[in-house]
């Protein structure tokens, strides 16, 4: 059996608290951001992934469904799953979500360290004004 080089090789960390399908989704997103994957690339078939790493095929299906839902990938009947042409804008939308989450975590961290609400608001306002000043 000859095998083509897969467009991406996944890895699974069973010791992570992140659901396995989510790990695959994150790896595809990361590969897109770093340029390892590009639009039009075909993702490895479920069967190829299962041969490559020890993983439940349902997990791969689940991850590909999620990528389709996010607009990053699309299934083409009888051909496989491909990275969409609008993957970068889809990626930005999800990136926004994670940035918001990180921002929130940081605010909580600051609060827990004793930073006052006024100080945080001040920081936010300053950052926005300063930034606007630079742009215009």
């Amino acid at each position: 059996m000859t095998q083509r080089q897969p467009s991406i090789t996944y890895r699974l960390d069973p010791r992570s608290g992140v659901a396995p399908y989510r790990q695959l989704v994150d790896q595809v997103r990361h590969a897109l951001r770093s340029g390892l994957l590009r639009e039009g690339d075909q993702l490895p078939s479920v069967r190829d992934v299962v041969t490559q790493i020890t993983i439940n095929p349902n997990t791969v299906h689940r991850a590909y469904r999620e990528l389709e839902h996010l607009g990053v990938a699309e299934g083409r009947a009888g051909l496989g799953t491909f990275i969409t042409s609008h993957s970068s804008s889809a990626l930005n939308a999800t990136k926004l979500e994670s940035v918001e989450r990180e921002l929130r975590d940081k605010i909580i961290e600051a609060r827990d360290m004793g930073v006052s609400e006024e100080r945080i608001v001040e920081l936010v306002t300053f950052t926005f004004r300063h930034d606007r000043g630079v742009r215009t």
Binding site: V46, R47, V50, T51, T54, I55, N56, P57, N58
Partner: peptide, 14 residues
């Protein structure tokens, strides 16, 4: 063990 589990997962996929 890894080989055995992969064969099992392939069967599940197929």
């Amino acid at each position: 063990r890894e080989d055995l589990l992969r064969i099992l997962m392939r069967q599940v996929a197929d």
